[in-house]
Design a protein around this nucleic acid. Structure first.
Lengths: 148, 148
DNA sequence: TCATACAGGACCGAACAAGTCCCGTATCAA
DNA sequence: TTGATACGGGACTTGTTCGGTCCTGTATGA
């Protein structure tokens, strides 16, 4: 269904909550605040820390803090950090040998613009946009899509 | 990884091939032509027929034909036909009760513009765009991507 | 010195997708 | 009229991935 993993979903929730809490919080604290299980929050934060989206501080009184303001974090970065490269199909870019029908595939290599379009769409939205309760002035639906 | 199902991938391949073959072909014929297993091609075509993207004709000398020219088929339609509605998360639009953290979730209902942006991106690309031979030869990697 | 909290793994069960197979029905040709 | 062809609509099995938990190690401050 073209859906992204729950890890990414959690990551967005955790980061926005981290911002709400003033910028610093521990994994247990965020777990209590978001309602997400503590091991899960820890897992998400570890992944975010590896991608340098949050910065972890060890020891008593330690915790995590945002490496950047939410407005400077495009959604695509979070997705890449949690789920890996944004690519709708296996046969992307330089991938070789992943497809049996390589020889006869009529759309070979043609997915690139699709991937690029999706990446662009996700890069245009920041976590600040997802956090704001406002009716969203900036990225209003381009054209009403009845399709569901 | 934000990837769509192989069914969708196959659907695009099958439909573009169907166009190449002049507009009419049987499931066994398309299987041989694309290199995809026959039961799989049949499955894909059945789903496409249900969504009225292809039209099936029974009996000997029957087969499938495109209901519309490829240029009139946005990629989003194919994805919806094969994988269902385009939505990156479970908590979309009017979905209720799908999320345990509903009460505390700070991004509740905020995914809508994201889904809309992705839909718009995928609606802007037609199967004809995917069919056209790329400006580059068939094998060259567009831009070297070490990452996978 | 000890409690706190991050860091980096391994591990298991459930859910989903991928692929196959079966039976029914419609159509055309011999 | 009969049989072969081919679509239509399912159910079913299998393999992989995801979601979630747990364990051990290390750094820091009270």
């Amino acid at each position: 269904m073209l859906r992204l993993s729950k890890m990414t979903d959690y990551a967005v929730v955790v980061m926005t909550r981290l911002d709400d809490l003033g910028g610093v919080a521990s994994a247990p604290g965020l777990a209590g605040s978001t309602g997400i299980a503590e091991p899960m929050v820890a897992k998400v934060l570890k992944a975010l820390a590896q991608s340098e989206m949050v910065i972890g501080t060890r020891g008593a009184m330690g915790g995590y803090r945002l490496a950047r303001p939410l407005a400077a974090v495009p959604l695509s970065d979070v997705i890449v950090a949690m789920d890996g490269p944004i690519a709708l199909t296996a046969c992307v870019d330089g991938a070789i040998g992943g497809c049996d029908a390589e020889a006869t595939c009529p759309v070979r290599g043609r997915w690139d613009p699709v991937n690029a379009a999706v990446r662009a769409a996700l890069s245009a939205i920041t976590l600040a946009d997802l956090q704001r309760p406002a009716p969203m002035p900036r990225h209003a639906a381009p054209h009403s899509l009845a399709a569901e």
